[in-house]
Design a protein around this nucleic acid. Structure first.
Length: 545
RNA sequence: GGCGGCGUAGCUCAGUUGGUUAGAGCGCUCGACUCAUAAUCGGGAGGUCGACAGUUCAAAUCUGUCCGCCGCUACCA
């Protein structure tokens, strides 16, 4: 029984390097989930890409005196290289800068405009005369109208925490030029999010099994005054062009309206590249499909509220069918770093690049997965990663593989021996492994990846116990046949455990695939008698501190 | 300020709808073993579950207040 699963992953913003928090929050859990779903036979489509629009990129480009595209290219390439090093198994990793993405965005815009969920409104915004640019709130600072602090941002005062309209700020200054901004009228398209308050409420209420913090946060946002309509265009020249001329030049669709559309546009791009242009419909016009969005908690409003509203607003106007809404949004909380050597610069954390400098990809994946912030913010540090790798991954799993392969190599003459009679003890271990596989699969369904990883490690521990109890190194001297059977059983256990761990540890798992053969589904496949086992090299190396 | 979350063994975290002596991994300690990357296996010590008050036959779990930390507060996405 296979079913289509869309693994939708937050789009990294191409304005700077991403850190381990982003990796643990979205990219790694999505990859682990996707790999497991593929093994159990589901039709996985895993898409994401670099988010290339938005004000921070243009500001950064100005600061460096380069084009926005240069910034985008730099970080997009950095991301691509890191995904490769980390083994993130995208079906497509694209960008929001493609003609396809523009086209799909414009299509959706037109559909929503046609159905009356987008309208035009005029407003007054602060404008920087020196750089000739309208200023987003965060680029204005001045004196707080409430507490008098001089370090208030345009929309909120960090000192007293109050929010207000940027036009209320006393002595506003542009952060781009330090000049005093002026008010200027501008006209924009607004998305009528408020049209969907009721629909979103029933959408959210129909969801079961969502993580508490996700559903609480989304419903809480709706409960008070509900969603308010938001401008989805800006006075910019960096962004997707409008498909209508109404507002004149210099207006673009703004990033947070178009970025989420990437899930759909990337699905279409993938289908196009596959040579089967309608294939995306298998995921988007299919009630049987399951759409799982992997994001950090800061992204919850966009994925639990804005994006579903945008999808609902399209209705059946694009192909006569409604687009599939999110089924689960297992947003992770934050990975936190405190002091220590976590950051080279300011102690704020470790970038993905730094993580890869210090650790093997599988080691980093293991340590982060063991600490995924699935329920609450989770503290991590360099020392914690080292501890996870040395004391758990290497000592328990790496060592198990190594000791069994070494003994098999030595005791059984370099190949997998024919087992003798299987005792109750042997059968009991294998039953434990098989049960762990089943339990692990259930945890994957619930996207409880940390617990699923623990299942695999518990299984490895059980195999270590079995070896200590059966002592094959000892009985090989008195009963070689029995020793060979024990090693056969132990290696069989490993053959099951590696399946459970493979979504987490793709690189070392591939080494085992080469040795033991490719696994076939989420099960322990019987070992092939006669398989050559040479002197093993360790799967992982300890980290020297 | 408002909303949400968190505060459980030295460390990182689990604790389902309130119910027997509060759990795991790691660390520590004692012991076993020696095939294995000084790895493994067994035993043990270690917590008044942030504080106080309340509801209940019974609370880490529900209610209230307080303390501490964090996030969000809609133009960062």
């Amino acid at each position: 029984m296979t079913s289509p699963v869309l693994v939708a992953v937050a789009w990294p913003y191409a304005s700077g390097s991403r850190h381990l928090g982003h990796l643990a929050g979205a990219y790694l859990p999505s990859d682990i989930f996707a790999r497991q779903q593929r093994i159990i036979g589901n039709e996985v489509l895993m898409v994401s890409g670099s988010d290339v629009h938005g004000t921070p990129i243009t500001v950064r480009a100005d600061e460096e005196g380069v084009a926005p595209q240069d910034i985008v290219d730099r970080y997009h390439n950095e991301f691509l290289s890191q995904w490769d090093q980390l083994g993130i198994s995208w079906d497509l990793y694209t960008t929001t800068g493609t003609p396809n993405h523009s086209h799909v965005t414009q299509q959706m815009f037109l559909a929503q405009l046609g159905s009356g969920h987008i309208d035009r409104r005029k407003s007054e915004q602060l404008f920087d005369l020196e750089v000739s640019r309208f200023l987003p709130d965060r680029y204005v600072e001045g004196t707080c109208p409430h507490c008098g602090s001089n370090e208030a941002r345009g929309d909120q005062c960090d000192n007293c925490g109050k929010t207000y309209d940027a036009t209320e700020l006393i002595n506003p200054k542009s952060k781009m030029s330090s000049s005093t901004p002026v008010l200027r009228e501008t006209e924009h398209f607004y998305f009528r999010y408020s049209d969907f308050n009721e629909s979103l409420k029933s959408f959210l209420n129909s969801k079961e099994g969502w993580r508490n913090h996700v559903i609480n946060f989304a419903i809480g946002w709706l409960r008070d005054e509900g969603l308010i309509d938001r401008a989805i265009t800006r006075d910019l020249d960096w962004g997707i062009e409008l498909p209508v001329e109404d507002l004149g030049d210099g207006k673009r669709i703004y990033v947070w309206y178009d970025a989420v559309i990437g899930y759909l546009s990337a699905s279409k791009e993938w289908a196009e590249r596959e040579g089967d242009p309608d294939r995306w419909k298998h995921w988007w016009y299919n009630d049987e499909a399951r759409h799982v969005y992997f994001i950090g908690k800061d992204n919850i409003p966009f994925h639990a509220l804005f994006w579903p509203a945008q999808l609902m607003a399209v209705g059946e106007q694009m192909d006569g069918q409604p687009l599939h809404l999110p089924d689960d949004i297992p947003a992770n909380q934050y990975v936190t770093f405190k002091g220590g050597k976590a950051s080279a610069s300011r102690g704020v954390g470790m970038t993905i690049e730094e993580g890869l400098e210090h650790f093997q990809a599988d080691a980093l994946r293991y340590a982060l997965a063991a600490n995924f912030p699935e329920q609450a913010d989770t503290e991590i540090s360099y020392d914690e990663i080292v501890r996870r790798v040395n004391e758990e991954l290497v000592a328990n799993w790496g060592n198990l593989v190594n000791r069994v392969l070494s003994m098999t190599h030595k005791t059984c003459g370099g190949y997998v021996a024919e087992p003798g009679e299987i005792t109750e003890e042997d059968a009991s271990l294998l039953a434990f492994i098989d049960r762990s596989l089943e339990e692990s699969a259930e945890l994957f369904e619930a996207v409880e990846l940390r617990a699923a990883l623990r299942k695999g490690m518990e299984a490895a521990q059980e195999a270590n116990r079995y070896l200590n109890a059966t002592e094959p190194w000892k009985i090989s001297k008195t009963d070689l046949a029995r020793a060979k059977t024990v090693l056969y059983v132990a290696l069989s256990a490993i053959n099951g455990i590696r399946v459970m761990l493979s979504p987490f540890l793709p690189f070392s798992s591939e080494k085992l695939d080469d040795l033991l053969g490719r696994p076939n589904g989420w099960v322990r496949v019987p070992l092939t008698v006669g398989l050559p086992i040479s002197k093993p090299t360790p799967l992982f190396t300890k980290i020297e501190t």
